[in-house]
């Protein structure tokens, strides 16, 4: 187990998986990669993005992805678009962010508007609506599978397994079962989680890492 107080916990987690991270070569490669991810994403791109960015291209560790997704979910806007912007920015600044987002949106936009022109009423065909229903069920399963994969990123979490499980359960009950608005859940459970994390980091003797030379996981080289 790595010392969870080091600022390089994300990197240590990556090493634990025995994965050497790579970098995209250019903003153009970001555009192409996000286009490819988007074109595989039926019923949501998030599952494909985690698979593609962490496991296939190895641009991000699971911890990195989890951190970026946390911020992307907290901010307004489509989660996957926020993730694309932040991943692009991390590697190539503003140009990278815009290329990643453009890659995610351009070709799918052309496809969806073409479909809208050709088959404006296709959804009234029973086979089409039945196929869509089956695809939605599988998309839900894939998002759950993404969550299961990302749980590996919790191993280095300073809060420890029981607290993580409790907070996760509280979130699920609030949003999934009680259907409370996300904003209130984030303000309530999210704030509690941050307070607990701050307490655990402090108790573990987490002195401010100001003098450390290790680059932050979200740092721009």
């Amino acid at each position: 187990m790595t010392d969870p107080t080091t600022p390089s916990a994300g990197r240590a987690g990556a090493a634990e998986e025995a994965v050497v991270l790579e970098r995209p070569r250019s903003s153009g490669q970001l555009f192409v990669a996000f286009t490819a991810l988007a074109l595989q994403g039926f019923g949501g791109v998030l599952a494909v993005a985690q698979h593609g960015l962490c496991e296939q291209r190895r641009w991000l560790s699971k911890q990195d992805f989890l951190e970026i997704l946390s911020i992307g979910q907290l901010l307004p806007g489509p989660n996957i678009c926020n993730v694309a912007l932040m991943v692009g920015y991390r590697f190539f600044g503003l140009a990278g962010a815009l290329c990643a987002l453009a890659g995610l949106m351009t070709v799918p936009l052309v496809i969806v508007l073409t479909l809208a022109t050709l088959y404006g009423h296709a959804s009234s065909i029973p086979e089409v609506s039945r196929a869509l229903r089956g695809m939605a069920v599988v998309s839900g399963g894939l998002i759950a599978g993404t969550a299961l994969r990302l749980m590996a990123g919790l191993r280095t979490n300073p809060m420890g397994a029981p607290l993580c499980a409790g907070l996760g359960l509280a979130t699920f009950v609030a949003v999934g079962l009680m259907r409370w608005p996300l904003v209130w859940t984030l303000l309530g459970v999210g704030a509690l989680a941050m307070a607990l994390a701050a307490w655990r980091i402090g108790r573990a003797g987490g002195e401010a890492p100001a003098g450390r030379a290790a680059p932050p996981p979200g740092g721009r080289p």
């Binding site: 989890l66 998002i143 969550a147 990302l150 996760g168 699920f172 996300l182 459970v189 999210g190 941050m194």
Partner: peptide, 19 residues
């Protein structure tokens, strides 16, 4: 660091909710 560590399990639970 508290923000990232605290929100990680919440983020995973929100994915389960979407599913």
């Amino acid at each position: 660091r508290a923000f990232k560590a605290g929100l990680a399990p919440v983020t995973i639970a929100l994915l389960i909710c979407s599913a």
